[in-house]
Design a protein around this nucleic acid. Structure first.
Lengths: 340, 340
DNA sequence: GCCCAAATCCAAAGCGCTTTGGATTTCACC
DNA sequence: GGTGAAATCCAAAGCGCTTTGGATTTGGGC
C-alpha cells in the first residue's frame, strides 16, 4: 500500500475511523491511550501531519499572525530593527503553532491591505509596525474587528488598543538630563521622521529636559529623517559646520550613531572628548554595543524582547477573546559607555 | 438583510448560483460581461473577498512561499541583510497574490521544520537562506518534492537545484587584485563564518588573486566570524596589533566595514591613506554607500534585487511545473570610493 | 419559424479536516 | 447474570470555496 497521505487513508490503514484518529492526534480524552499510541506511531512512521489548509478551514482559525510593515513611499526601506523584532516574536508564535505572515505594504495601500486581509480572513491577528501620530490604522482595525497589537503607540488616538512600547519620553528626558548634568549646554537631537509617534515622544522628552534646565531654543537643534547611517553622518556634518556646534548629540539609534561617529572622526574630533554622543540602543544583534565599557553611552531597550512581548500579548488576546485592551510600557536601561 | 459574508450569501443576494459568482470573480469566460459587472459591484459594495482558507483547500494550492531563515545556534541572530532581501521578494509575491511565510529556525531543527512544512503542505515553495558548504537542506527538499530556490549556492552538492547567487569568487578576486595593483602586499580578509558557502567562495577568490601575484601565505590573514559591526572592529584591532599589520583590508560586508573603520580611526590612522579598505556592499537601504564619492570602495550587488529574482524564479518554477533547474549568477559592480 | 451551436447559468460533488450526536463496548458493582 | 455509567469508537454533516457535467437560454442563418 502506498504511504497514506491523508486522514482518510491513515485511518483506513489503522482500521479506525477518521474521528478517532483525528481525536487521537489532537489529544482528546475520548480515545484510549493504547490506540493513541498506535495512531501516533503510524503518523510518525508515515510522516503524516494534517493538511494545514483543511485544518484551518475546518477549525475556522487560520493560525497565522500578520505583520504588516509599512514601506516608506520614496525609499522603499525596511528598517533593520525589524529583523530583531521579528526574531523575538517568531519564537513565541512557534510555541503556540502559529505561522508568521509578513507583508510589506506601501503607505497608500495600507487601508486596502488591512481590509482585504480581514475579509479574506487569512490571519487571526496582526501586529502594527511603526505607528504614526494619530495613526488611522488603529481605528480601521478596531472597526474590522481584527485582533491587533501596536508596536509603539499613537498619540491622538482616542480608542483603546493593545500596545507594547518603550518609554521614549522618559528615557530621552533622562538622557538629555544626563548630558546637561555633564555640563553640556549646546545640544542636538538627531531624530526619526517627525510624523512617527516615537520620534515625537523622544523630541518631547528632550525638550522637557531642556526646559527644566532653562536651555533656550537657540541652543539646541532637532533634525528629522529616516534613521540611516548616512543620515546620521550628514546631519552631524551640518551641525558641526554651524555657528554654534553642539557639544553633545543625542542619536535616535545605534545605526544613526555610527554615522554620527563617522562625521565626528572625519572632522578630526574625538568622540567622548570633543563631543559627546548618547544613543538609543535597540540591542540589535549585528550592532551589539556591550562589553566592559561599551563604545557608546546608550539608553537600551531590547527590541527582540519587545517582539516577544508583542506576540505574547496578541496571542493571549486572541485565545482568551479578551476585549480588554492592554498596554505594556518598557523602561530603557541607562548604560554608561565611552562616548560621553 | 445582513451584509453577505460568504459566497453562498452573496450569490443568494444576487439571485445567482455560487458557480456563476465564483466564475465571475475569477475571470472565467463562461459568464457574461453584464453579470460579471454586477457581481464585481456587489463584491466591492459588501467588501467581500473569498475566504482564503476555503479557497486554498478547494484549489489545493496554499498560495504562500516559506522563507526559512536559519538562526545561529548560539547568538540567535537575524542578519539585517535579510530585511532588504525580503523586501525585494515580497514585491514579487504581491504581484502574483502569494503570501510570505517567515519562519526562523534553529540549525538543529531544520530537518523537522522542512519536513513538517512539506507534509502539512502549507507552502507551495520555499526559499533557502544562508546555504552552507554541502548543505543538506538541498537534498532534503529535493526528496520532499517541494519547489525551492537557494539564495546562494552550496558547493559539494551534486544534485540540481535552483539558485540565485552573486559571483563572490570573481568579485573578491577582482577586489583583491585591485588592492594588489595599488601596491598593497600585506592583505587581510575579514570573512564570514567558514562553513558558509559564500565565505568559502570569497576566500577562494581572495587567495587566487594572491597566488596569481605571488604573495606568500604569511603576508595575508583571513578571519572568520558572524558579520557584525563589533566583529569588524575587534578583528581589525587584532590585525593592527600584529607584527605585520595589513595595509589593506577586505571586509565581507558594509556592516563589518563600519567596525573596521572604527578600529582604524580609533588607532589614530586614516582610512584610505594609512590603510585601505574594500568591502562587499549589499546596497542595504539603511547603509547606503553612494553619492559622488562613496565613503567605501566596494564591490556592490543589490540584495534586494537578488530577492526579487529569487522570488521570480521560484514562482515561475512553481507555476510552470518546471523540472528544469536554473541558476542565476549576478555580477557585482566595482565602485570606487574614498577608502582605497 | 426552426435548428444548432454558442452563451450562460446551475446543482452537486469534492478538497481534507473537525465535530456533533449517537452507537457500541467495557467493566465495576450488586 | 444483570445493570448502568464510563469508555471507546463511528457515520455523517459542515467549513467556504472550486469545478465537473449538464441544463437552459440566446441568437444567427436558412
Amino acid at each position: 500500500m502506498a504511504s497514506p497521505t491523508n486522514l482518510k487513508q491513515l485511518s483506513a490503514h489503522l482500521g479506525l475511523s477518521q474521528t478517532t484518529v483525528s481525536r487521537a492526534l489532537n489529544g482528546f480524552p475520548e480515545v484510549s491511550e493504547k490506540t493513541r499510541q498506535r495512531v501516533f506511531e503510524a503518523a510518525k512512521h508515515y510522516n503524516y501531519s494534517p493538511d494545514s489548509k483543511a485544518k484551518r478551514l475546518a477549525t475556522g482559525r487560520s493560525m497565522t499572525i500578520g505583520h504588516l510593515v509599512p514601506i516608506s513611499n520614496e525609499h522603499e526601506m525596511v528598517n533593520p530593527v525589524f529583523a530583531d523584532f521579528i526574531s523575538g516574536a517568531s519564537a513565541r508564535y512557534a510555541e503556540s503553532g502559529y505561522d508568521l505572515l509578513l507583508s510589506l505594504v506601501a503607505d497608500h495601500e495600507e487601508i486596502s491591505a488591512y481590509t482585504r486581509m480581514a475579509s479574506r480572513s487569512n490571519v487571526d491577528g496582526v501586529v502594527v509596525h511603526a505607528p504614526k501620530i494619530n495613526d488611522h490604522r488603529i481605528k480601521l482595525l478596531n472597526s474590522l474587528d481584527l485582533p491587533f497589537v501596536v508596536h509603539g503607540r499613537s498619540s491622538g488616538v482616542k480608542e483603546d488598543y493593545n500596545w507594547v512600547d518603550v518609554n521614549n519620553e522618559r528615557s530621552f528626558f533622562a538622557a538629555t538630563e544626563h548630558l546637561i548634568n555633564l555640563g553640556h549646554r549646546q545640544l542636538a537631537l538627531i531624530n526619526g521622521l517627525p510624523d512617527m509617534d516615537f520620534a515625537m515622544r523622544r523630541s518631547a522628552g528632550f525638550q522637557r529636559a531642556l526646559n527644566a534646565h532653562g536651555i533656550a531654543a537657540n541652543d539646541f537643534t532637532i533634525t528629522s529623517g529616516e534613521m540611516t547611517e548616512p543620515y546620521g553622518y550628514e546631519s552631524t556634518q551640518l551641525l558641526l559646520q554651524s555657528d554654534t556646534p553642539p557639544t553633545a548629540i543625542l542619536a535616535s539609534s545605534i545605526i544613526v550613531a555610527n554615522g554620527v561617529r563617522r562625521a565626528i572622526t572625519n572632522a578630526g574630533l574625538t568622540l567622548g572628548q570633543d563631543i559627546s554622543v548618547l544613543a538609543h540602543d535597540d540591542d540589535l544583534s549585528y550592532f551589539r554595543n556591550d562589553g566592559d565599557t561599551p563604545e557608546f553611552t546608550v539608553i537600551r531597550s531590547s527590541v527582540r524582547e519587545a517582539g516577544r512581548l508583542t506576540a505574547d500579548l496578541l496571542l493571549s488576546s486572541i485565545e482568551n477573546q479578551n476585549t480588554e485592551k492592554k498596554g505594556i510600557l518598557l523602561e530603557a536601561e541607562f548604560v554608561q559607555g565611552n562616548s560621553t
